[in-house]
Protein backbone atom coordinates (compact mmCIF):
# COMPACT_ATOMS: atom_id res chain seq x y z
CA UNK A 1 0.00 0.00 0.00
CA UNK A 2 1.55 3.25 -1.08
CA UNK A 3 -1.08 5.47 0.54
CA UNK A 4 -0.25 4.79 4.16
CA UNK A 5 3.41 5.66 3.64
CA UNK A 6 3.75 9.05 5.18
CA UNK A 7 7.51 9.17 4.93
CA UNK A 8 9.41 6.95 2.56
CA UNK A 9 13.17 7.28 2.58
CA UNK A 10 14.92 5.53 -0.28
CA UNK A 11 18.62 5.05 -0.61
CA UNK A 12 19.51 8.10 1.44
CA UNK A 13 23.27 8.54 1.20
CA UNK A 14 25.18 11.35 2.80
CA UNK A 15 28.68 12.60 2.09
CA UNK A 16 30.41 15.11 4.33
CA UNK A 17 33.99 16.12 3.65
CA UNK A 18 35.08 12.75 2.35
CA UNK A 19 33.14 10.76 4.95
CA UNK A 20 29.99 8.78 4.20
CA UNK A 21 28.01 8.66 7.47
CA UNK A 22 24.82 7.44 5.76
CA UNK A 23 24.92 4.58 3.24
CA UNK A 24 21.71 4.00 1.34
CA UNK A 25 19.28 4.35 4.22
CA UNK A 26 15.82 2.93 3.58
CA UNK A 27 13.12 3.80 6.03
CA UNK A 28 9.35 3.77 5.97
CA UNK A 29 7.02 5.55 8.35
CA UNK A 30 3.31 4.82 8.13
CA UNK A 31 0.65 7.37 8.89
CA UNK A 32 -0.18 7.66 12.57
CA UNK A 33 2.54 5.21 13.56
CA UNK A 34 5.66 5.65 15.58
CA UNK A 35 9.00 4.42 14.34
CA UNK A 36 11.93 3.80 16.63
CA UNK A 37 15.36 4.37 15.13
CA UNK A 38 17.87 2.38 17.16
CA UNK A 39 21.62 2.19 16.88
CA UNK A 40 24.93 2.79 18.53
CA UNK A 41 26.27 6.27 18.81
CA UNK A 42 27.69 7.36 15.48
CA UNK A 43 25.49 5.03 13.45
CA UNK A 44 23.83 7.96 11.65
CA UNK A 45 20.54 8.34 13.54
CA UNK A 46 20.81 12.09 14.06
CA UNK A 47 21.98 12.78 10.53
CA UNK A 48 19.01 10.84 9.19
CA UNK A 49 16.68 12.94 11.34
CA UNK A 50 18.39 16.16 10.25
CA UNK A 51 18.13 15.08 6.61
CA UNK A 52 14.39 14.87 7.01
CA UNK A 53 14.34 18.34 8.58
CA UNK A 54 16.60 19.80 5.90
CA UNK A 55 19.02 20.87 8.61
CA UNK A 56 22.14 19.10 7.42
CA UNK A 57 25.51 20.53 8.41
CA UNK A 58 27.37 22.70 5.91
CA UNK A 59 29.09 20.75 3.21
CA UNK A 60 26.81 17.70 3.47
CA UNK A 61 25.66 16.29 0.13
CA UNK A 62 22.60 14.04 0.17
CA UNK A 63 21.61 11.55 -2.50
CA UNK A 64 18.50 9.43 -2.75
CA UNK A 65 14.97 10.40 -1.87
CA UNK A 66 12.98 11.29 1.21
CA UNK A 67 9.35 11.26 0.11
CA UNK A 68 7.10 13.13 2.48
CA UNK A 69 3.52 12.50 1.44
CA UNK A 70 4.86 11.89 -2.03
CA UNK A 71 7.08 15.01 -2.20
CA UNK A 72 10.84 14.62 -2.20
CA UNK A 73 12.17 16.62 0.74
CA UNK A 74 15.73 16.46 -0.54
CA UNK A 75 14.73 18.37 -3.67
CA UNK A 76 13.02 21.25 -1.85
CA UNK A 77 14.33 24.79 -1.87
CA UNK A 78 14.86 26.56 1.44
CA UNK A 79 11.63 28.54 0.97
CA UNK A 80 9.59 25.46 0.17
CA UNK A 81 11.06 23.72 3.18
CA UNK A 82 9.79 26.34 5.56
CA UNK A 83 6.19 25.39 4.95
CA UNK A 84 7.03 21.85 6.08
CA UNK A 85 9.72 22.36 8.69
CA UNK A 86 8.22 23.27 12.03
CA UNK A 87 4.77 23.08 10.48
CA UNK A 88 4.16 19.57 9.18
CA UNK A 89 7.27 18.10 10.78
CA UNK A 90 8.63 19.25 14.14
CA UNK A 91 11.68 18.08 16.01
CA UNK A 92 12.96 17.96 19.56
CA UNK A 93 16.56 17.38 20.48
CA UNK A 94 18.80 15.48 22.82
CA UNK A 95 20.02 18.26 25.09
CA UNK A 96 16.99 20.29 26.16
CA UNK A 97 19.01 22.75 28.23
CA UNK A 98 21.05 23.99 25.28
CA UNK A 99 18.24 23.65 22.77
CA UNK A 100 16.27 26.60 24.09
CA UNK A 101 17.49 30.12 23.44
CA UNK A 102 18.97 31.47 26.70
CA UNK A 103 18.06 35.07 25.88
CA UNK A 104 14.32 34.65 25.44
CA UNK A 105 11.58 33.60 27.80
CA UNK A 106 9.69 30.34 27.42
CA UNK A 107 6.63 32.36 26.49
CA UNK A 108 8.41 34.25 23.73
CA UNK A 109 9.77 31.07 22.17
CA UNK A 110 6.37 29.39 22.09
CA UNK A 111 4.59 32.56 21.08
CA UNK A 112 6.69 33.06 17.96
CA UNK A 113 5.66 29.65 16.66
CA UNK A 114 2.00 30.45 17.19
CA UNK A 115 2.43 33.86 15.59
CA UNK A 116 4.65 33.01 12.64
CA UNK A 117 3.88 29.39 11.87
CA UNK A 118 0.23 29.28 12.94
CA UNK A 119 -0.57 32.84 11.90
CA UNK A 120 -2.52 33.66 15.05
CA UNK A 121 -2.70 37.45 15.11
CA UNK A 122 -4.34 37.96 18.48
CA UNK A 123 -1.72 38.06 21.25
CA UNK A 124 -4.15 37.08 23.99
CA UNK A 125 -5.26 34.09 21.97
CA UNK A 126 -1.65 33.04 21.44
CA UNK A 127 -0.98 33.31 25.15
CA UNK A 128 -4.03 31.25 26.04
CA UNK A 129 -3.05 28.63 23.48
CA UNK A 130 0.55 28.61 24.71
CA UNK A 131 -0.47 28.20 28.33
CA UNK A 132 -2.76 25.30 27.49
CA UNK A 133 0.14 23.67 25.62
CA UNK A 134 2.35 24.01 28.70
CA UNK A 135 -0.42 22.43 30.73
CA UNK A 136 -0.80 19.64 28.22
CA UNK A 137 2.88 18.67 28.55
CA UNK A 138 2.52 18.58 32.34
CA UNK A 139 4.14 21.83 33.41
CA UNK A 140 2.92 23.01 36.80
CA UNK A 141 2.05 26.72 37.11
CA UNK A 142 2.26 27.50 33.38
CA UNK A 143 1.54 31.19 34.04
CA UNK A 144 4.77 31.50 35.99
CA UNK A 145 6.77 29.40 33.53
CA UNK A 146 5.65 31.62 30.67
CA UNK A 147 7.98 34.37 31.84
CA UNK A 148 10.85 32.08 32.84
CA UNK A 149 14.18 31.92 31.07
CA UNK A 150 15.56 28.51 30.12
CA UNK A 151 18.36 28.63 32.70
CA UNK A 152 15.73 28.81 35.41
CA UNK A 153 14.40 25.36 34.55
CA UNK A 154 15.57 21.78 35.03
CA UNK A 155 16.39 19.50 32.10
CA UNK A 156 13.11 17.66 32.33
CA UNK A 157 11.16 20.90 32.44
CA UNK A 158 13.11 22.25 29.45
CA UNK A 159 12.33 19.13 27.47
CA UNK A 160 8.64 19.54 28.27
CA UNK A 161 8.85 23.11 27.03
CA UNK A 162 10.57 21.92 23.85
CA UNK A 163 7.79 19.41 23.34
CA UNK A 164 5.15 22.10 23.87
CA UNK A 165 6.97 24.31 21.37
CA UNK A 166 7.03 21.48 18.83
CA UNK A 167 3.32 20.79 19.38
CA UNK A 168 2.45 24.46 18.98
CA UNK A 169 2.51 24.13 15.21
CA UNK A 170 0.34 20.99 15.33
CA UNK A 171 2.76 18.89 13.29
CA UNK A 172 1.81 15.62 11.64
CA UNK A 173 5.19 14.14 12.44
CA UNK A 174 7.33 14.64 15.52
CA UNK A 175 10.97 13.67 15.36
CA UNK A 176 12.47 13.10 18.79
CA UNK A 177 16.24 12.66 18.74
CA UNK A 178 17.23 10.87 21.95
CA UNK A 179 14.90 13.14 23.94
CA UNK A 180 15.65 11.48 27.26
CA UNK A 181 19.34 10.65 26.99
CA UNK A 182 20.45 13.78 28.83
CA UNK A 183 17.88 13.42 31.61
CA UNK A 184 17.72 11.74 35.01
CA UNK A 185 16.35 8.22 35.04
CA UNK A 186 13.08 9.08 36.76
CA UNK A 187 12.50 11.99 34.43
CA UNK A 188 13.25 9.81 31.40
CA UNK A 189 10.30 7.57 32.16
CA UNK A 190 7.99 10.58 32.57
CA UNK A 191 9.02 12.10 29.26
CA UNK A 192 8.61 8.76 27.46
CA UNK A 193 5.16 8.37 28.91
CA UNK A 194 4.31 11.94 27.93
CA UNK A 195 5.41 11.39 24.33
CA UNK A 196 3.47 8.16 24.10
CA UNK A 197 0.34 9.85 25.41
CA UNK A 198 0.70 12.87 23.14
CA UNK A 199 1.12 11.02 19.85
CA UNK A 200 -1.83 8.85 20.78
CA UNK A 201 -4.09 11.79 21.69
CA UNK A 202 -3.03 13.96 18.78
CA UNK A 203 -2.85 11.17 16.20
CA UNK A 204 0.67 12.21 15.31
CA UNK A 205 3.34 10.11 13.74
CA UNK A 206 6.67 9.95 15.50
CA UNK A 207 10.24 9.06 14.70
CA UNK A 208 11.84 8.23 18.00
CA UNK A 209 15.61 8.03 17.99
CA UNK A 210 17.27 6.09 20.78
CA UNK A 211 20.22 3.87 21.49
CA UNK A 212 18.07 1.58 23.62
CA UNK A 213 16.29 -1.17 21.73
CA UNK A 214 14.08 -2.05 24.67
CA UNK A 215 12.84 1.51 25.07
CA UNK A 216 12.16 1.74 21.36
CA UNK A 217 10.21 -1.49 21.47
CA UNK A 218 8.15 -0.19 24.37
CA UNK A 219 7.34 3.19 22.83
CA UNK A 220 7.14 2.50 19.11
CA UNK A 221 5.04 0.46 16.67
CA UNK A 222 7.99 -0.24 14.43
CA UNK A 223 11.74 -0.35 14.84
CA UNK A 224 14.56 0.35 12.45
CA UNK A 225 18.02 -0.77 13.47
CA UNK A 226 21.00 1.27 12.30
CA UNK A 227 24.56 0.11 11.99
CA UNK A 228 27.38 2.20 10.51
CA UNK A 229 25.06 4.37 8.47
CA UNK A 230 22.88 1.54 7.19
CA UNK A 231 19.33 0.66 8.25
CA UNK A 232 20.05 -3.03 8.56
CA UNK A 233 16.58 -4.05 9.64
CA UNK A 234 13.07 -2.65 10.00
CA UNK A 235 9.85 -4.23 11.19
CA UNK A 236 7.11 -4.25 13.83
CA UNK A 237 8.63 -3.72 17.27
CA UNK A 238 7.78 -6.99 18.93
CA UNK A 239 8.85 -9.01 15.91
CA UNK A 240 12.22 -7.31 15.65
CA UNK A 241 12.61 -7.72 19.36
CA UNK A 242 11.52 -11.36 19.51
CA UNK A 243 12.83 -12.72 16.23
CA UNK A 244 15.53 -10.39 14.92
CA UNK A 245 16.45 -11.08 11.31
CA UNK A 246 19.75 -9.33 10.88
CA UNK A 247 22.81 -10.85 12.57
CA UNK A 248 23.63 -7.39 13.97
CA UNK A 249 20.26 -7.09 15.67
CA UNK A 250 20.66 -10.59 16.99
CA UNK A 251 24.04 -9.76 18.42
CA UNK A 252 22.70 -6.51 19.84
CA UNK A 253 19.91 -8.30 21.67
CA UNK A 254 22.28 -10.89 23.03
CA UNK A 255 24.61 -8.16 24.27
CA UNK A 256 21.81 -6.39 26.13
CA UNK A 257 22.28 -5.94 29.84
CA UNK A 258 20.28 -8.38 31.93
CA UNK A 259 17.09 -7.26 33.63
CA UNK A 260 18.96 -6.45 36.82
CA UNK A 261 21.59 -4.42 35.04
CA UNK A 262 18.95 -2.79 32.92
CA UNK A 263 17.38 -1.20 35.96
CA UNK A 264 20.25 1.23 35.87
CA UNK A 265 19.04 2.70 32.64
CA UNK A 266 20.89 4.86 30.18
CA UNK A 267 23.28 2.08 29.22
CA UNK A 268 24.29 2.09 25.62
CA UNK A 269 24.29 -1.17 23.74
CA UNK A 270 27.81 -2.39 23.61
CA UNK A 271 29.05 -5.19 21.47
CA UNK A 272 32.00 -6.07 23.62
CA UNK A 273 31.24 -9.72 22.97
CA UNK A 274 31.78 -9.34 19.25
CA UNK A 275 35.35 -8.98 18.08
CA UNK A 276 36.25 -6.08 15.82
CA UNK A 277 34.94 -2.55 15.73
CA UNK A 278 32.40 -0.46 13.85
CA UNK A 279 33.80 0.65 10.48
CA UNK A 280 34.55 4.35 10.24
CA UNK A 281 32.39 6.55 8.08
CA UNK A 282 35.43 7.31 5.95
CA UNK A 283 35.95 3.65 5.03
CA UNK A 284 34.95 2.46 1.59
CA UNK A 285 32.87 -0.67 1.97
CA UNK A 286 31.96 -2.72 -1.07
CA UNK A 287 29.82 -5.35 0.65
CA UNK A 288 27.91 -5.49 3.92
CA UNK A 289 28.97 -3.00 6.63
CA UNK A 290 28.66 -5.69 9.31
CA UNK A 291 30.59 -8.38 7.42
CA UNK A 292 33.84 -7.95 9.33
CA UNK A 293 32.13 -8.75 12.65
CA UNK A 294 29.33 -11.04 11.58
CA UNK A 295 29.34 -14.62 12.83
CA UNK A 296 27.30 -15.82 9.85
CA UNK A 297 29.52 -14.11 7.34
CA UNK A 298 29.90 -15.59 3.87
CA UNK A 299 32.44 -14.85 1.22
CA UNK A 300 30.01 -12.84 -0.88
CA UNK A 301 29.29 -10.54 2.10
CA UNK A 302 32.56 -8.71 1.45
CA UNK A 303 31.88 -8.03 -2.20
CA UNK A 304 28.12 -7.82 -2.64
CA UNK A 305 26.04 -5.09 -1.04
CA UNK A 306 22.95 -6.73 0.41
CA UNK A 307 19.75 -5.45 -1.18
CA UNK A 308 16.67 -4.79 0.92
CA UNK A 309 14.99 -8.13 1.46
CA UNK A 310 11.27 -7.70 2.15
CA UNK A 311 9.48 -10.34 4.17
CA UNK A 312 6.01 -10.86 5.57
CA UNK A 313 4.47 -8.22 7.91
CA UNK A 314 6.42 -5.52 6.09
CA UNK A 315 9.65 -6.71 7.63
CA UNK A 316 12.79 -5.72 5.85
CA UNK A 317 16.44 -6.40 6.29
CA UNK A 318 19.68 -5.87 4.47
CA UNK A 319 21.36 -9.25 4.68
CA UNK A 320 22.36 -11.64 1.96
CA UNK A 321 21.12 -14.53 4.09
CA UNK A 322 17.61 -13.09 4.03
CA UNK A 323 17.77 -12.52 0.30
CA UNK A 324 18.42 -16.20 -0.26
CA UNK A 325 15.43 -17.35 1.75
Amino acid sequence: MLDDRMLDIRGLTLDIHGARPLREIDLVLKKGKSLGVVGESGSGKSLTALSIMGLLPNGAVAQGQALWKGRDLLALTEDQYRTIRGREIAMIFQDPMSSLNPSFTVGFQIDEVLKIKMGIRNAAERRARGLSLLKEVGIPAPEERWNSYPHQMSGGMSQRVSIAMALASEPELLIADEPTTALDVTVQAQILELLRRLIHERHMSMIFVTHDLAVAAKVCDEIAVFYAGVAVEQGPSEMVFETPRHPYTQALLRARPTKIQASSEGRRPRLAAIPGSVPRSTEQIAGCVFASRCEKVMESCFTKRPPVAEGANSRKSRCLLQGDQ
Binding site: L55, R87, F93, D95, S162, M165
Partner: peptide
Protein backbone atom coordinates in the same frame (compact mmCIF):
# COMPACT_ATOMS: atom_id res chain seq x y z
CA UNK B 1 24.67 26.42 19.05
CA UNK B 2 21.86 23.97 19.61
CA UNK B 3 19.28 26.70 20.09
CA UNK B 4 20.00 28.11 16.64
CA UNK B 5 19.32 24.66 15.21
CA UNK B 6 16.08 24.64 17.24
CA UNK B 7 15.11 28.01 15.79
CA UNK B 8 15.70 26.65 12.28
CA UNK B 9 13.80 23.49 13.12
CA UNK B 10 10.86 25.70 14.05
CA UNK B 11 10.79 26.78 10.43
CA UNK B 12 11.67 30.42 11.11
CA UNK B 13 13.11 32.48 8.28
Amino acid sequence: EDYVRTARAKGLS
